[in-house]
Design a protein around this nucleic acid. Sequence first.
RNA 1: GGGUGUGUAGCUCAGCGGUAUGAGCACUACGUUGACAUCGUAGGGGUCACAAGUUCGAUCCUUGUCACACCCACCA
Length: 877
Amino acid sequence: MLEKTYDPKNFEEKIYASWEEKEYFKPNMNKNKEAFAVVIPPPNVTGVLHMGHSLNYTLQDILVRYNRMLGKNVLWQPGTDHAGIATQMVVERNLAAEGITRHDLGREKFIETVWQWKEKSGGTICKQLRRLGASCDWSRLRFTMDEGLSRAVRKIFVNLYKDGLIYKAKKLVNWDSKFMTAVSDLEVIQKETVGKMYYYKYPIKGEENEFVHIATTRPETMFGDTAVAISKDNEKLKHLIGKECIIPIINKAIPIVADEHADPEKGTGAVKITPAHDFNDFEVGKRHNLPLVNILNPDATLNENTPFEGMDTQSARKKTIETLESMGLMDKIEDHPMVIPYGDRSGVVIEPLMTDQWFVDAPKLAVEAMRVVENGEMEFVPKTYEKTYFEWMRNIQPWCISRQLWWGHQMPIWYGPDETIFCEENEEEALVAAEKHYGKKVELRRETDVLDTWFSSGLWAFSTLGWPDKSEFLDTFYPTSVLVTGFDIIFFWVARMMMMSMYMMKKVPFKKCYIHGLVRDEHGQKMSKSKGNTVDPMEIIEKYGADALRFFMAAMETQGRDINISESRIQGYRNFATKLWNSARFGEMNECVFNSDFDTAKVSHPVNKWIIEKVKQTSNELTENLNSYRFSDSANGVYQFVWGSFCDWYIEMIKPILYGEDEQAKAETRATFAWVLNRILIILHPFMPFVTAELWNNYHSEEDIINAQWPAKENVDENAIAHIDWVIELISAIRSLRAEMNLPAGSKLTAYLQGANEQSANNVNQFANIICALARLEKIELYNGDITPDMVQTVFRENTVLIPLKGIVDFAAERERLQKELAGLNKNLESYARKLNNPAFVDKAPAAVVEEERRRQAEALENKAKVEEALQRIVGL
RNA sequence: GGGUGUGUAGCUCAGCGGUAUGAGCACUACGUUGACAUCGUAGGGGUCACAAGUUCGAUCCUUGUCACACCCACCA
């Protein structure tokens, strides 16, 4: 027996636990079945579920459950990411609360602490995923720092290194002074700010009172200047080229060089060149063979190459300006809008810094990664993201993969006594290689840098399946079927997976890549803790159930758009679950028992035929929509069918049958109801797994809905649908008439149908009880008599529906209603006439369109005549 | 500066070369009829941003304009 009210708290968690216990999420490994695999975008192991996750995992679970019901061999591979910087940051913050830094602990002890923390809090996100209903194969849970995955990382690193695709170089990199590590271009975010532009001058060497005026936003970097550049086309200043100028305060002479980087239109036309601290200047420096002077310590304080050693950049800037001012060298200071780079995790200003770092030759790896998208081996859905992907890939820069952090995969690099590099999968092999190289045993020193987190994520599609070992899973499920992820990590992750997979596996990591948008707040604002507009999915689940949240996500997911969270809408989908629940209760009360032998072909009652054909039609459309990743169309189609067709019409129409005397019709209707409800549960299950399972379990004792068979494409009898649609339209017409004439809902009326053709006459006779029940009529009859002034009328197809009111007609209201109807008809007639009187239209438009237009015109004309007659009759009354 | 999207009902958004049967919420009126008030019935509400072009026909295609959003690049 079902509870009177739908309360997801009563069963959601219980059902999930039983699924997991029965190991339903494991692939069936049936070799005769098509394989379908999805690897989860691994959440940060220490993270908690947010709305973006809810969307991402819901979409995947829909696809996974759908494919499982298609009978495929389905794997949803779960796992979590060690998230280098993010995790280290959290743990360091915890330590800071106790007044300790990671340096107090030392590397080994610190890493141990991180592992402990991972063990303690790492399970949260997985628990929350279960709560959402995600049907991953938890027995295969992976973590990017697992032994197996770490081995994969080392192996591919060694391969890349030996192929010359990983190299060490001293380069200008983005330096994060908080974490004291290099970061990649992607981890730098540019922020608009209003800063200052400082104008000052350098004296020309050997000249009295001659200066070169320069402008900069970072005056403190002047101690690292090794030249001033001027364009050779700069008529005003080109006479200075070749001379030298003096950096004040430190009294250092630097050359004035000719370089096109100095735009005569910008600033003063002369640019100070600081090759060690600016990407553009670095290039200029290379062109002119300028020395590099590093002026910063790793923590972004000024170093011994400056007079302000130990000061942070802001203080040094102030001090520099003051000193220049006192020397009479300042020209002016102006407000200046500019863009400043910040570390996306640390929030501090990123400084370009010369350091030794490791790089992946991304431009080379990008070639294959682009080719397989060009030739369609991997397809983006929606297709438009392909452009974003290509755009980035074409302009890709070497990828800086070394991080001076502690938490992460330590690079498999060892240095010999003379700094010779040995890159091997483990220390033993490195030692062997070194012995061979030196001709004797030597001590090696391991590289302390760790890898960018995204390096290991890039291997995810095959490392989780067992690579580098031989594995049945790898053979069966690679390449995976589809990757579902947000557009914000196309570069971070999708692109890297493509590059790494093509390099190592020579096959795409996934055949399709479904890209979804961001989840925003109700008004389209980005959700953030600082704005205070975040919505916690766990609270939503607590309040409305996981099914409601999932259905919301599916219903809102239209390709290429962000989703605005809307609690009222989620509530609406909870109501939908309630509606479904109550319809099942209706079935239970009326002894509608599911019978697997039920044969839809033997059904005879038109109402039953109608709902059977409708549900087949809905299933067909749903299958098509799911196959083309049209989530919102999928969800909305089922929603409309369940609420609109099944609940609003079918249940109401069968009440007269179920409460009637015809036992055979009753039996057939009960069986039909149960069959249709069963079908609804199946097709709704990927979207709302919990409520469908709970209702299913109410009458299936053996089989579980998870393994229920998804309906194959079926032929739909359109006539059976049209038959009852006629009844529905008639009832709607009568209800409309009643409401507009303000006829009390309780009043039992008689309706006449005038001008009925044979078909309509049959319908009225056959469905009189249904029509009367739903339109709240005493009786409905065919009528051939005259229309009298006390009748109100409405036109329905070829018929006129008449309701005699025996003196209670409100003629004013009736006149108003008829006039409104007439105005509508006239408007339509104008439009038809405009088209049909246009010879070009009749000539060139497809015949079917012209025919349809003619039919509409004829019908409207007929209706108009009837309405006009009606108006005539009540003139003066 | 380069790119990609988006402007449709009060709000949030679907949709489509052939009258916008648009959806949910909100709104108005009526309603407790033996699943459901987490409900039912009926209804109001739109020059589909603007302009030009293509077309028999444009909200939909093309171009331009305006507005907004996002991505990439750029610290003179």
